[in-house]
Design a protein around this nucleic acid. Structure first.
Lengths: 196, 196
DNA sequence: GTCTATAAATGGATAGAC
DNA sequence: GTCTATCCATTTATAGAC
């Protein structure tokens, strides 16, 4: 059960990385996704800016870690959705969870689901986290008998649209969130003929 | 038919303002919505940065003018949609026009329809341009017998979702654009019972 | 690994001459 | 109205001492 010095060092290193990412999320929520600098990040973990470079080679690398982290958090959140025998209930719960997740942190919504940071694109490894979540959704719909990618794309468009309209036009309210049930009803009656 | 000196001066002033806004759009398309500076803007209209302050009191004021200008352009574009007796055709054409408009300039899509510039909110006057367009859409749906705001919100969410998924996940392709017809079919069969 | 110091650039914005 | 000059803050990132 002994652990090598290198392993403990690596653990500490990873722990600090996580703190940096958490600090970046806090600042993004406060000042906007592109509104914070490395000094802010460093200060809020008790460091000076240059020390961050022991953990991340660039600011984009921090965005990249945030991206992966955000999708892992999203996947965990989606995993908490209580399953139901009713397709309708399952879809409504999934969509509501997604909408809540977006609304509770608009900066995260922008980083994960929109293309907002000029010049930033997630690395293949981080993008893989996004693919995993999308695959979860694919499996969920497949479990309902929907196997066509177009069915999945239509569902993501519908929920993404509710989220983006909510964020852009009524960030504090429920104008579009309140439409989740009708939206899922609409979706379900449309795909009804294709259910297996 | 004579025009006062002041009027001609005002006209020239307005013309330069328009050039500045046009230059800002070009740069936003090139370098990202938040990726350009006032020096760039000034240079691309043959000026130095301080001279811009004769036309706009701040960078946010330029974003504000872009916002109003973008919604005017959007309204003109929507006005070109050929009317049809078929509700389905009308909705498909409107949605396709919206999607094309978004895809042809992602920075414009972000400024008009997402909340991307940290700290920027449109002035009431500029926001009024957005309200006008939304009212056009309200009238269009009302002409089809759909008078409920929820019908309008559901339609905007659906089209906005197609646009944002397209922009974020397949900016060069047609993966979600290709779903306009099914999406409109879905929408129409759902609201069918409420048509007057 | 963290620091100071600094690079090298850029940001928005202002003062004041012309 | 436009310019030069400049302010002042800030940015990301690097060099090198400790």
């Amino acid at each position: 059960m002994s652990v090598s010095v290198e392993e403990r060092r690596a653990e500490r290193h990873a722990a600090v990385r996580d703190q940096v990412v958490a600090a970046a999320w806090r600042l993004a929520a406060e000042k906007g996704l592109t509104g914070f600098g490395l000094r802010d990040v460093a200060a809020s973990v008790g460091m000076r800016a240059p020390s961050l470079y022991s953990y991340f080679p660039s600011k984009f690398a921090i965005y990249d870690a945030m991206f992966a982290d955000g999708y892992r958090a999203f996947r965990e959140r989606i995993a908490t959705v209580r399953p139901s025998r009713s397709r309708r209930v399952s879809l409504v719960r999934a969509a509501e969870t997604y909408l809540d997740f977006c609304q509770e942190d608009p900066a995260r919504h922008q980083l994960l689901f929109l293309r907002v940071v000029p010049g930033f694109e997630p690395s293949p490894e981080s993008y893989a986290e996004a693919v995993v979540v999308l695959d979860d959704m694919r499996v969920l719909l497949a479990g309902m008998g929907l196997h066509d990618r177009r069915h999945l794309d239509l569902w993501t468009a519908l929920t993404a649209g509710l989220a983006s309209q909510q964020a852009a036009n009524d960030p504090e309210g429920k104008r579009w969130t309140a439409l989740v049930e009708p939206a899922m009803d609409m979706y379900l009656s449309y795909v009804e003929g294709d259910l297996s």
